[in-house]
Write a protein that binds this DNA or RNA. Structure first.
Length: 591
DNA sequence: GATTATAGCGCG
DNA sequence: AAAGCGCGCTATAATC
């Protein structure tokens, strides 16, 4: 059964005095659940937008077991090749096509500026704000949600791969729940450790607008070495001019280019840039803004990347620098279980292409090592760079040099990404295993292609078109693998989320964790192929088992009986840094 | 003065 | 050695 949660429709509002005094919520059992999702044991909540409904529920200590996020699923079904002939795909833009409200990266010190605070369109219910969950004005109402559910139901049922699409839709929706829960719980962050890292590298915290002592010293060294007393090391053109003036033939100030240059100014300049990055991106200002209470709470943007990966907003959650991993620390008496999927994308490719030799190379072991043992290439580093080149479309250097050997050894896998590249070059749409489809190239792309076909097209126009063609091919090549890997990760996190809840609560270890997760192991961080669970210390080993089990289950969900392993590198420790350091390869069992 | 664009670097 | 995919964020430059 599906329970639709929405604003009441106008047809239910006979008069403004009928407006419910409490929650502005309408609930109705939808008639067609089994066709969309298959038979289920428990109700599934369907709502327009998890990000609009769920945070307030969590604040009230309520956890939702499963849902359908109609906006996210709508977006998938609108674009999918598998549902291209459905009414849903052809319909004009409706209430589910409007972009999710621009999630103003609301810093925690301004917690009010979120979806819930949009002014309600009905003055009669304006006074309910703060009393109960309710969506922003303009959010789809009950009738619209029911109609949407029926349209999605029809689209999936009439599609070329209903089972896979169903899995994708429930996975995406479960991801939305996990994302909201991680934001709610927050990543435990030790401000004192972070401060110590900053002080050891930068010196004491400077007053606003001042350079930290170490950076000031390095800037002076650079100025002296370049004989440029007024040089601003933060200005790229300024730095480039100064380098050229002392006779250095550099074309940019990129780190890798400068590293090859022999001059006394280079070392302090690179050191300055490194520290400057730390200070501006993750310095004291960042700490003040994003970790006010010992928790880092980024906003995860589910489906925020074309491939289905998540984006994030606020605080740069996808770029926590290695240097600061020691600041991510479990609460007293708790542990962090850190897991990342080893060589996820090549394994996903092996499953996608049903390439048994490649799957075998990764069976229960490091996949790159397995490629070497099979005699395909001589060194692990070559296997790695070659695989990455195949996934990204590398055309130069060592990567391109080993590609023929990989193609010979793994024709199914390498052939699949080559085909995806060719399709993209023709301007066609490609899709992931579960049916998420790539966008079409935009009008500008087609125009450039058209221009190159003119009889009097210039060489320049033709080469522009060729390079653009190849670029789109590299995108579609990577799309099928990155996108299917994202689907694996959704299944992984969804299954783990269930397992963790099923473990229950450790009454002896309440920790500093907010309801509904008091005493319970819970997800606190997710990054493409890596996740972190925060749990009572005594439960850490069991959590590690469940994390690996969920990875194995995810492999089964996507690839059935095809024998491809998804081993994890798992570490348990008080800090993220230590956990990474002590990580070991684990292969889980699905049951 | 407020905006948009770019370079550069962090992460997978 | 430093390109081949996907992001977010910052400071500065460029543009209105």
């Amino acid at each position: 059964m599906i329970v639709v949660v929405a604003r009441p429709s106008a047809t239910r509002r006979t008069s403004s005095s009928d407006e419910p005094a409490g929650p502005v919520v309408a609930v109705r059992a939808a008639p067609t659940s089994d066709a969309v999702l298959g038979p289920e044991r428990a109700p599934r909540w369907a709502w327009a937008d998890t990000a609009a409904w769920y945070p307030r529920l969590l604040t009230d200590g309520v956890r939702v077991e499963r849902c359908l996020d109609l906006r996210l699923t709508h977006r998938i079904l609108r674009a999918s090749s598998a549902t291209a002939s459905a009414t849903l795909a052809a319909a004009p833009p409706g209430p589910f096509d409007t972009a999710t409200e621009p999630t103003a990266p609301a810093a925690p010190d301004t917690p009010a500026a979120t979806l819930f605070d949009a002014v309600d369109d009905d003055p009669a219910s304006a006074g309910h704000r703060g009393l109960a969950p309710h969506p922003a004005a303009g959010s789809p109402d009950e009738d619209e949600c029911l109609a949407e559910l029926a349209a999605q139901d029809a689209a999936v049922t009439g599609s070329s791969a209903p089972g896979r699409l169903r899995l994708l839709l429930v996975g995406e929706s479960a991801g939305a729940l996990a994302a909201a829960e991680m934001h709610h719980a927050g990543l435990p962050w030790d401000v004192a450790v972070h401060d110590e890292v900053l002080r050891s590298r930068l010196g004491d915290r400077p007053s606003r607008g001042e350079r930290p002592a170490t950076m000031a010293r390095l800037a002076a060294e650079v100025r002296a070495a370049l004989d440029a007393p007024t040089l601003n090391p933060d200005s790229l053109p300024d730095v480039l001019r100064a380098l050229r003036r002392v006779g250095l033939a550099v074309s940019s100030t990129r780190q890798w280019e400068l590293e090859g240059v022999d001059h006394p100014a280079i070392a302090p300049l690179l050191a300055y840039k490194k520290l400057s990055r730390l200070h501006s991106a993750n310095g004291w200002a960042w700490l003040d803004q994003w970790v006010p209470d010992g928790r880092f709470r980024p906003e995860y943007v589910v489906g925020g990347v074309v491939t289905g990966r998540w984006g994030s907003s606020g605080g740069g959650a996808l770029q926590i620098p290695r240097q600061l991993r020691s600041a991510v620390r479990a609460d007293p008496g708790w542990r962090l279980v850190v897991a990342d999927a080893a060589q996820l994308e090549p394994r996903v490719l092996a499953g996608l292409a049903r390439d048994e030799r490649m799957a075998e190379a990764g069976a229960g072991r490091d996949l790159y090592g397995g490629i070497v043992e099979s005699g395909v290439v001589a060194e692990r580093a070559l296997a790695k760079v070659g695989m990455l080149g195949a996934l990204y479309g590398g055309t130069t250097g060592a990567s391109a040099a080993v590609l023929p050997r990989l193609l010979q050894a793994y024709p199914a896998a390498v052939g699949l990404v080559e085909d995806a590249a060719r399709a993209g070059e023709r301007g066609e749409v490609v899709s992931t295993l579960l049916g998420r489809s790539s966008p079409r190239p935009d009008a500008a792309w087609s125009r450039v292609q058209g221009d190159a076909l003119d009889l009097d097209a210039s060489d320049r126009a033709q080469s522009r078109a060729r390079s653009q063609t190849r670029a789109w091919g590299r995108f579609t090549r990577n799309f099928v693998v990155q996108g299917t890997a994202a689907e694996w990760a959704l299944c992984w996190i969804a299954d783990l989320r269930r397992r963790l809840w099923a473990m229950g609560a450790d009454a002896a270890s309440p920790g500093l964790v907010a309801p509904p997760f008091v005493g319970r192991p819970h997800l606190v961080y997710f990054l493409h192929d890596e996740l972190v669970v925060h749990c009572p210390a005594a439960w850490a080993d069991e959590v590690a088992v469940q994390v690996a089990g969920a990875a194995s289950a995810a492999g089964r969900l996507l690839f059935g009986d095809f024998p491809v392993d998804f081993p994890l590198s798992v570490g348990v420790a008080e800090s993220y840094a230590e956990a990474k350091e002590h990580a070991r390869l684990v292969v889980g069992r699905p049951a």
